[in-house]
């Protein structure tokens, strides 16, 4: 049974029909790379999976939590779905350690000591154990993004959504973030990534999903699709990236 099941999903922004019937099953431990031009609906699709974006029709189910156009238990859903953003979105008034601890304390109701230990081990996992007491503005972009990953992981999500998480980084900082994500993938974390890092998508992705005009235009094994795109749109997209 799929961990994430998306069926016949539709969404409009005003008169703009941005998602035109998306069906997608994601198995536990899979790494999904969502690619496509801007405006193809890939970020919108990602954001519906944790309820940041509503939708008009269809259904999403994540590990038994149903998301409906109306009336979803967002708290239960978001305990299972973590998200990392392009702009990191760390809380600037809190240290790295406090950023990681905050939601574990108030949402997961962990005690202070347990939350601190967990935060330390999460920061260790992303290679930033010595930055526990640093504020976000004392960290590089790559370090901030790794703290954001640690913060999401501390909630022990079943799925991690990554929304262009290296797009705001200087080129020399991209790899340190991708290395962390690669480790997560190797550990069996289920990842859904909107990304422009095609090499990474090819190497780490289990499934490539190419979106075009609000639909899944083509999807499958990344190696195969990159080598042999079936549609002119995907061929054109790959050509324009490289």
């Amino acid at each position: 049974m799929a961990l994430v099941r998306i069926e016949a999903l539709h969404k409009h922004f005003g008169s703009n029909h941005v998602l035109r019937g998306i069906d997608l099953d994601i198995e536990e431990g899979q790494v999904i790379a969502l690619i496509g031009r801007s405006g193809s609906g890939k970020s919108t699709l990602l954001r519906t999976i944790n309820g940041l974006e509503s939708f008009d029709d269809g259904s999403i189910e994540v590990d038994g939590e149903h998301i409906r156009p109306q009336g979803t238990d967002l708290r239960a859903l978001r305990m299972k779905v973590g998200m990392i953003f392009q702009q990191f979105n760390l809380f600037p008034h809190l240290t790295a350690g406090q950023n990681v601890m905050l939601a574990t304390r108030i949402v997961r109701k962990m005690g202070d000591d347990a939350a601190r230990d967990l935060a330390k081990s999460m920061l260790l996992k992303v290679g930033l154990q010595e930055k526990f007491d640093a504020y976000p503005d004392q960290l590089s972009g790559g370090q901030q993004q790794r703290v954001a990953i640690a913060r999401a992981l501390a909630m022990q999500p079943r799925v991690l959504l990554c929304d262009e998480i290296t797009s705001a980084l200087d080129p020399e900082l991209v790899n340190e973030v991708l290395a962390v994500v690669k480790n997560l993938a190797a550990e069996g974390m289920t990842l859904i990534m909107v990304t422009h890092e095609m090499r990474f998508a090819r190497e780490v992705g289990d499934k490539l999903v190419f979106m075009y005009q609000g639909r899944i235009h083509e999807s499958g094994d990344p190696q195969t699709l990159f080598a042999n795109p079936q549609t002119p749109e995907l061929a054109g997209f790959i050509g324009s990236i490289n």
Binding site: N50, G51, L52, L74, R75, R78, M79, V81, G82, M83, F85, Q87, N89, L90, F91, L102, A103, I106, V107, A148, R151, A152, M155
Partner: peptide
């Protein structure tokens, strides 16, 4: 306060 702060905290299941 930037919208990203709301989105990040919402994504951490905060009310």
């Amino acid at each position: 306060i930037p919208k990203g702060q709301w989105e990040a905290s919402a994504s951490l299941a905060m009310s």
